[in-house]
Design a binder for these strands. Structure first.
Lengths: 224, 224
DNA sequence: TAGATTGTTAATCGATTAACAATC
DNA sequence: TAGATTGTTAATCGATTAACAATC
């Protein structure tokens, strides 16, 4: 276990820094400053330095953070190298889109099989992934010792699916349904509730005119 | 504008409570307690009561919160009733899945048109939505006075797309690409960075055994 | 050196949790 | 009434931001 517990927001930012190191590497840059990283990640240089304080490596004063080394360090810290297998339940539009999403394998997530309960779908393929009947889940996941499950079913079956996942030994669930499945405390559930995120946009739009159109003109800014 | 600024997490929880009121309503329940709502939303009763303190209505001691009234209150507060039109750019797998996602219109989001730059896609339909060339975006969005934009393109065009959206008068951007587009400060960008969320799961799995089994300590690494 | 940038400790801020009086 | 539940103020917690010494 990582020694001083890293905050989740820092964890997520590390990946954003990682991406910027990657492009910098392609551009042949040997060092990147916290200032530049902050710009790329929409945060402050202080935050970047704080985040890096959880890593077992340091930058160089007056120079910045060495690109190649930090690529390796973050890769290792976030365990981007080792493949982690996952199963996905619910091969609808969203499920299929995630199964085909190119970004995941890049960071070590490998979806190995899809499950559904629709007889018309079972036996077909999405990319090179097979769709199997959801009854096979417990057995297969258990046998393959898969630890990550993705739920893209309608809400009303999400709890049942989560139960099967837990029974099969899955320890981390990425839940894209609006349900909030209950699981034992040693199992992590990340709820990616699209609609509840949408609310944030909606609320902003609703209040937009009151916020910005009274009085002053917004200041001119330079974003480069 | 809402008077005491409501925290974003509260805003999101309000939608979760709303869903629970909805099912309770179908079950014919007239009142729901903060205890039950807390259970449904994976939070505490205190938090529920705190969240409701931002609403212009109260519960009843010893009884709970009236289902019908709170459905109406939350609907109003989150502006779930009025349709808010949106455009989506990037009609790939994820873009199409979002365009067809049934959950959105339920909460007032109506995607009205898709844009793409692939000549093979342009002119085709996704459900009953047309795919138009991205060159038409500024004009059409401006004319229709659309305020919400969704980006499901690859990272390398995200900034360009965001620029067009801003130029067209869009005020809230839901960005599903891994890029971090820069926009004027009066425009809201919500980054739904799937991969960076994945990292949280991955990190949990990586540290799982150390956390919950009395077993062995992960080996120390040496970088230099 | 002077100046820029890192690393770390302390202060602040915002959200959650706790405490408890008010209510029915 | 007694007991359950709400509403609100205060305390706590965690993350961000600020300050500043150390470094090259």
């Amino acid at each position: 276990m990582q020694n001083p517990e890293i905050p989740l927001p820092s964890l997520r930012r590390l990946l954003i820094y990682y991406r910027h190191f990657k492009t910098a590497s392609q551009a042949g840059l040997d060092y990147i400053s916290s200032i530049e990283l902050a710009w790329a990640a929409d945060t402050t240089p202080e935050q970047v330095r704080k985040d890096f304080s959880f890593l077992p490596s340091q930058g160089r004063s007056r120079v910045g953070y060495p690109t190649q080394k930090f690529l390796a360090i973050i890769e290792d810290y976030l365990d981007l190298v080792n493949d982690k297998e996952a199963v996905l339940v619910g091969a609808g539009n969203l499920g299929q889109a995630l199964a085909l999403y190119p970004g995941f394998k890049q960071y070590g997530l490998r979806i190995v099989v899809l499950f559904d309960n629709d007889p018309d779908k079972i036996g077909t393929r999405v990319g090179d992934l097979r769709i199997l009947p959801v009854e096979n889940l417990v057995n297969l996941v258990d046998r393959m010792m898969i630890r990550i499950g993705i739920i893209t079913t309608p809400a009303y079956v999400a709890q049942k699916v989560a139960d099967s996942m837990v029974r099969a030994g899955i320890k981390a669930i990425w839940n894209f349904s609006p349900a909030r499945p209950k699981v034992p405390e040693d199992v992590l559930v990340r709820n990616m509730d699209l609609s509840s995120d949408l609310i944030v946009l909606s609320h902003y739009i609703q209040n937009y005119s009151a916020r910005f159109s009274t009085g002053r003109i917004p200041e001119e800014k330079n974003y480069t």
